[in-house]
Amino acid sequence: MRVRAGRMTYAVLIVFTVLSLFPLVWTAIAASGTNGRLARTPPPFWFGGNLPKNLGIAWTDANMGVALLNTVIVAGTVAAGTVLFSTLAGFAFAKLRFRFKNVLLLLVIGTMMVPPQLSVVPLFMLIAELSWTDQLQSVVLPALVSAFGVFFMRQYLLEALPVELLEAARVDGASGLRVVWHVVFPAARPAMAVLAMLTFVMAWNDFFWPIIALTQNGSPTVQVALTGLGRGYIPDQSVIMAGALLGTLPLLLVFVAFGRQIVGGIMQGAVKG
């Protein structure tokens, strides 16, 4: 039952909020100081004056500028492709009749359980063969498949797209692609936006495969560049923190702008999944 929250509830939630935000805030504090300042007791609790300088070093020396641009390209392409393919497949699974539909849907769900580790060795051999190492398509193409996306769109379209609407369009003589364009996409738009944001976040933070396929000094994504920093590429801790800040800030801005929609999308996906 929805009981009015008491003081205790607020107190616990505020502690939870502080714990959730503290590592992020402290990243900025550490990035604004110097290496020496971080080696003091007690550790710094407030900002220093070195933020622009450290951000600049991270931007150029740690390749974070290139990495940010690459990651925007990768995450943007992956999000666009995933949303398009997932909407088409989700529509077919939700509203159309065809043979082997249930078997194929089970196959889609089954692929959600397969760990990515199971395909990295052949994928690596493939991109080595094609000389795709350090090329962005090596991380974009394998990420375009999202079983979660197909399932998410199917669940949404089951309810959001009335069969009568489809039949009316058919009676008017609209061809399949026109139906998709004029009926399915408009009905699916809210879910497409949510899926785009969720996919963008996932692609931005993708870790395992990019650090195998890309290198620090070639064309890194943000995660590859940060891994390089963490493994001793630059010894200055405040610069490392500046890199972490640069790599996180864009997503945090997305969350500030669209937090409500992202929260809604995750909760919606949870109930229907």
């Binding site: 959730s20 992020l24 870790f207 940060l226 972490a244 996180t248 997503l251 945090l252």
Partner: peptide, 10 residues
């Protein structure tokens, strides 16, 4: 949800 937006690396 903000920690979820933070990457493993960061």
């Amino acid at each position: 949800l903000t920690p979820y937006a933070t990457s493993v690396a960061a």
